[in-house]
């Protein structure tokens, strides 16, 4: 658990770093240094963590990294766009299956399929998004759930192509990555690049418009924003990174199976985002740590993991809706906002 909590102080110091202290070029270069500081510090911390722990914990860390990308990508929809999707497991599963089936049917190299996986997921996300985004709110949640079940049923019943409920297992991960520490460092590199790219998306004007739609759809529409197209793009970007997370999953699990696509699997990244705080960028990542290490610790002592998870989740949504990171940064965030209003923007 201690390793799960370690990003907290660094993440909250990021908000501190964003408090503008002065004006002009000096401030700009220092704010650049500061905006680089958080990702670098977190990366160094994670590399050190990888070398410090060993064996099973390292495998758990690999698992966590895949989930960090999965949860952060899901939160692009949840926290950014305000879209509750119970279908992100579709893209996660497709990512894993792309690697597995590429090896099984066409003997494609792992490296090719690993980077193909997010592209395939994004391509599938286009038609899914086109249909699902016609519906709103609860209907959107339910139609994405239907896509998840459809994908699950297809993976389970098309035995000739997917090997059905057995899933795809095999030695399709190159030996360099099955070495725990090398595999971990590779996944860490992929995670860092993914998070930086997603951070860019959320900080872009496009990300701002997406949040504007979440806050007030009607007003955004009245201002001439094409809501449907914006939401579709976020949906596809989220699908892309969910697919990448699925390919990352394969690196440590060396398998792909139908349960990955199930709607209850789509719940997992949502839980992580809610636990960590879906109003913050790094909240879902922190949630992934807490969720996975919490799970691994708890199942050693009690059999009722779902009971604990459900109880924690219920308490969080009822009494602590900002999540862990959200609650920690809320105070500082409002301080930053106030100082922005006084001293002008640094972005």
């Amino acid at each position: 658990m201690s390793s799960g909590k370690s990003p907290v102080p660094t993440a909250s110091s990021q908000e501190e770093a964003r408090v503008p202290t002065g004006a002009g070029a000096a401030a700009r270069s220092s704010s650049l240094a500061r905006s680089v500081a958080t990702p670098v510090a977190l990366t160094v911390l994670m590399v050190a963590l990888g070398f410090a722990v060993g064996g099973n914990t390292l495998t758990t860390l690999e698992e966590v990294l895949a989930l960090v990308v999965f949860a952060t990508a899901t939160n692009l929809l949840l926290g950014q766009a305000g879209l509750v999707s119970f279908g992100q497991a579709v893209f996660y599963g497709i990512g894993a299956y792309t690697v597995g089936l590429g090896w099984l049917h066409w003997h494609l190299s792992f490296w090719l399929t690993f980077f193909l996986a997010p592209v395939v997921s994004a391509l599938v996300a286009i038609p899914v998004g086109l249909v699902a985004l016609r519906a709103r709110r609860l209907y959107f949640a339910l139609s994405t759930l239907a896509f998840s079940e459809l994908a699950y049923q297809l993976a389970e019943s098309r035995y000739d192509f997917t090997q059905g409920a057995n899933g795809v297992f095999g030695p399709f991960v190159p030996s360099v990555l099955t070495d725990p520490i090398k595999g971990y460092l590779f996944l860490l590199a992929v995670t860092v690049v993914s998070l930086l790219l997603m951070w860019k998306v959320t900080r872009s004007p496009f990300g701002l418009v997406t949040r504007a739609i979440r806050e007030n759809r009607g007003r955004a529409q009245a201002l001439g924003v094409n809501v449907y197209r914006h939401q579709l793009i976020v949906f596809v970007v989220s699908g892309f990174f969910c697919g990448l997370a699925g390919a990352m999953f394969v690196v440590y699990s060396q398998s792909a199976y139908p349960e990955l696509l199930d709607w209850t699997s789509s719940g997992t990244p949502i839980f992580m985002a809610v636990i960590g705080g879906m109003g913050t960028f790094l909240g879902p990542a922190l949630g992934a740590f807490i969720y996975q290490f919490g799970h691994d610790e708890l199942v050693r002592y009690v059999s009722d993991w779902q009971l604990v998870l459900g109880g924690v989740l219920l308490l969080i949504v009822m009494f602590w809706p900002d999540g862990v990171l959200g609650s920690l940064t809320k105070v500082k965030w409002s301080q930053w906002r106030n100082s922005l209003n006084k001293g002008g923007s640094d972005e």
């Binding site: 719940g267 949502i270 839980f271 809610v274 009722d304 993991w305 779902q306 009971l307 998870l309 459900g310 109880g311 989740l313 219920l314 949504v317 009822m318």
Partner: peptide, 12 residues
């Protein structure tokens, strides 16, 4: 999410 949590709790 609250009702999802209840599903998990009731199941266990």
């Amino acid at each position: 999410l609250a009702t999802f949590a209840l599903l998990l709790i009731f199941a266990d």
